[in-house]
Design a protein around this nucleic acid. Structure first.
Length: 259
DNA sequence: ATGGTCGTGAAACGA
């Protein structure tokens, strides 16, 4: 089974890139973030030839998440209990029967946070608190839980190009890193880091200031799972080539292969 | 502290 997550930064602008990606990688499940369109404006028809079940939680202008799944969902949930910003479409969850077993699968777009210690930043930390409580409540022996998306946090020094330059900046403050580490310490596994314990690769580069050319990136997109998935992990990698296309997303896909 | 570039939607604003 192949599962991918990708912050596309506008589904409309990235439609051809997404179609190429689906054609090349043929993932069973794709978690999307920042689709930036209303649910009823999602390009359902333009993706119909790939035979995915499409689950969309959009809104006007910004945010927006979706799940494309070869397996039909038993249940679809558009928010998590305790989310304090339900008006922002940042969460979608499906439960599906897969060849691996029964899975609960979440696509999440964690708030960026804006300026450190701003109101938005405080809301980001609270979003993590509430999401963590929700994930703890959903850990069950009889299902595998996947949560993939844009966490807007680089958890460890190895996940940024320069810990010194970024220390104390949004997505790399101690408080934010602790929030993501707390999820991991509750018994969730970062599939990329499991597959590549010492490799330094990034999932996002700023559009500005030649960040890509200087490889000034961060690893802020991940797929986390419960422990019962780990023995199935064959590989997890990031698709750098998607960042070198014309008009790319500022994020690249993260892909996990499980058997 | 500021600026650099995108996407949205038609001007700033968020990332």
């Amino acid at each position: 089974m192949k599962i991918a997550t990708w912050n596309v930064n506008s589904i409309k602008v990235r439609l051809e890139h997404l179609r190429d990606f689906l054609g090349q990688e043929n993932p069973d499940i794709v978690l999307l973030q920042e689709i930036k369109c209303e649910t009823n404006k999602f390009p359902y028809d333009e993706l119909s030839d790939f035979n995915y079940n499409l689950y969309v939680h959009g809104q006007k202008s910004g945010n927006g998440v979706a799940i494309l799944s070869k397996f039909p969902a038993d249940e679809i949930t558009y928010d998590f209990l305790g989310n304090e910003c339900p008006s922002e479409s940042r969460f979608i969850e499906i439960s599906v029967q897969t060849p691996l077993g029964f899975c609960r699968i979440i696509s999440v777009y964690v708030p960026n946070g804006g300026e450190v210690n701003s109101d938005k930043f405080i809301k980001k930390l609270k979003f993590f608190n509430n999401l963590t409580e929700y994930l703890k409540s959903k850990k069950k022996l009889d299902e595998m839980l996947f949560i993939g998306g844009d966490f807007n946090v680089a958890p460890f020094d190895i996940d940024v190009y320069s810990p010194r330059a970024l220390e104390g900046t949004t997505c790399f403050t101690i408080e934010e890193r602790q929030k993501l580490r707390t999820i991991i310490n509750c018994g969730f596994y970062d599939l990329y880091r499991l597959a590549h314990p010492t490799k330094q690769e990034f999932s996002w580069w700023d559009y500005r200031s030649g960040a890509l050319q200087q490889n000034k990136g961060m690893r802020i997109d991940s797929i986390l799972t419960t422990g019962n998935v780990v023995s199935h992990l064959k590989d997890c990698f990031m698709l750098y080539s998607m960042r070198t296309l014309t008009r790319p997303s500022d994020h690249i896909p993260v892909i996990a292969i499980l058997k």
